[in-house]
Amino acid sequence: MALLRRSETVIAGILLLAMVLIGTINPAFWQLDNLFSLMRSNVIIGIMALGVLLVLISGGIDVSFPAFAVAAMYLTIKGMLALGYNGVVLPLLAATIMGLLFGAVNGFFVYKFRMIPLIVTLGTSAMVRGFLLGVVGTSMININKMPTALIDFARTDVISVTKADGTTYGLTAMVLIYVGLAVAMHLVLRYTMIGRSAYALGGDPEAARRAGFDLRKTIFFIYCVAGALAGFAGLLHSGMIWLANPRDFVGLELDVIAAVVLGGASIFGGRGSVLGTMLGVFMLVMVKNSLIIMRVDTTWQLVVVGSIVIVATALSAWRDRRRTA
């Protein structure tokens, strides 16, 4: 317990330091509208990160969730347009279930054929994206065709501030959804048997099996939840950007995995927390956004994210080795 707390304190400390540094280079960072827009950028990556956290804790890896997210989003919106349906709850539910079903395919292959999760998820990712673009369509659905209910829902603000010049900006209510999901995930991971079994599986699969955990249930739960969160986040994303692009989320897996590892989840499985993940997501989003504020050329983004992955995993590996030694 004490150790866990310490690892998150370190991340929070680094985060604060980075904020002070960026704020010094460009004081515009501390303006409320910048902070609000930062939090807004956390929502989608954050929700997906909760699923990836679960997968990493169990000792697996998932690179298919961006494909699931985009497929659930595009298919749902296509369906809404075809049916002429304009709503919020049912579509979000549909996207979530779609993601869950995709995730179940991952779970099936990982459990049934004992295949390395990376290879399974590479395969399902290619299939889902290929199907979406090859069969369903490649054209974007623009704002003029987007279901208005979704956009209105995603536009809701919790706090609204009016600037001196009369323009208003606010903190999106989607942050509340993100926090709500995070709290739920925290409770599941900490207090339920299925949550504990994910840690057990990541710590030592054989030991978990002998301790009496039903690993089939655990593995299906993990990949289904990861898929469901991705599907949900996908549709929410299109509502927030007023656009449904079937080529969206390419390369997002790296950002999300980076954020989760940055948040202290072990790359060897068995360790990781929701709070750490949220801090990691915030750090990653902040660094990426602040590259622009600090006037760094955007072409450097990939290099920066890649380097963050390497440094974070190296630190995580170093920490875990020291502990086992």
Partner: peptide, 30 residues
């Protein structure tokens, strides 16, 4: 990275792959 730092090959090469691609973007500008 894999042998000395003890990073799992998946994550090490996922990270370096982005760095190499990123450097390629920096060199060409796109």
């Amino acid at each position: 990275l894999i042998t000395r730092m003890g990073i799992t090959p998946i994550l090490a090469t996922l990270g370096t792959g982005q760095v190499f691609t990123g450097l390629a973007i920096v060199l060409t500008g796109g």
